[in-house]
Amino acid sequence: MNVHYLYSLLAVIILGLIAYAGSEGAGLTWLFGLVIPYVALLIFIVGFANRVWGWAKSPVPFRIPTTAGQQKSLDWIKSSSIDNPSSTPGVIMRMALEIFLFRSLFRNSRVEISGDRLSYKWVIWLWLFAILFHYSFLVVVIRHMRFFLEPIPFVILMIDKVDSIFQVGSPVVYQSGVVLFAAATVLLLRRVFVPKVNYISRAADYFPLFLIIGIAFTGIVMRYFAKVDVVGAKELAMGLVTFSPGIPDASIGGIFYAHLFLVCVLLAYIPFSKLMHMGGIFLSPTRNLANNSRAKRHVNPWNNPVKVHTYEEYEDDFRDKMIEAGLPVEKE
């Protein structure tokens, strides 16, 4: 047991309860339904932009891509244009593979020797659950757009349809929600039970996972068990995006406000946490630069002037010995 995940778990439970009690008991629906979402969104946008601006302010003095393949040198040697890009299209491909397929994480493969034979086994669990987690999250977010748009665009309807393709349960089950919940849980269990990952994990690692699990959990409960008033939820959401906020007359239910509040906490938390990796990955200098600094000049804006030891100083130091050894000198 360690305090890092206990604190995080407690924090998420308390946050959920506050919203539930506050909206259901204290009748603070305007606070949890209107004020906090706007504040959270504001914090998110300003915080995120501020963070990215902070990164962008610092220059990239050197070209330091991690080269993970053959360089482009002689014409007849096949270069690895994606893993060691020498031009912008290659960099774009490399970044696309990183962002959409988590390519580097996928490299986590290993070779196993059984007897005399080499057999290849990929330890793909981390990669697999990371992919499932991120993509199901994406689908969930896109799917939720139907609450914020009227009429609902065709694309979102399609995604909605595909996401519930198995047509089980009533209301029909979205796979994305279930997968998100499951994948986040696996990633959490990994942190708790794999010793070396446990050793490096801190509250900042557990809290977002618990938060997302909490969001998925409240979402699932609300849709399949508590069956909150969807029409009311949409009314509230539309009010928010059209800047004519209002709380619908019919009660939507405390669980809805708990869900919404956790989402708001997540939004506001992103700029101050490791979740900024969603922005950082685009700016990582070992990935987003071409390995072409021998072919094209890269400029360092702060290129410090430094004291060097000039040839003249060198010759002054050793002139006699150089002459004696028959080495040419500038000044006899």
Binding site: R110, V111, E112, I113, V194, P195, K196, N198, Y199
Partner: peptide
């Protein structure tokens, strides 16, 4: 503790 599992369980020779 943190490396026990690695030393004990990772079967990759290299």
């Amino acid at each position: 503790t943190e490396s026990k599992a690695f030393f004990g369980k990772n079967k990759d020779l290299f």
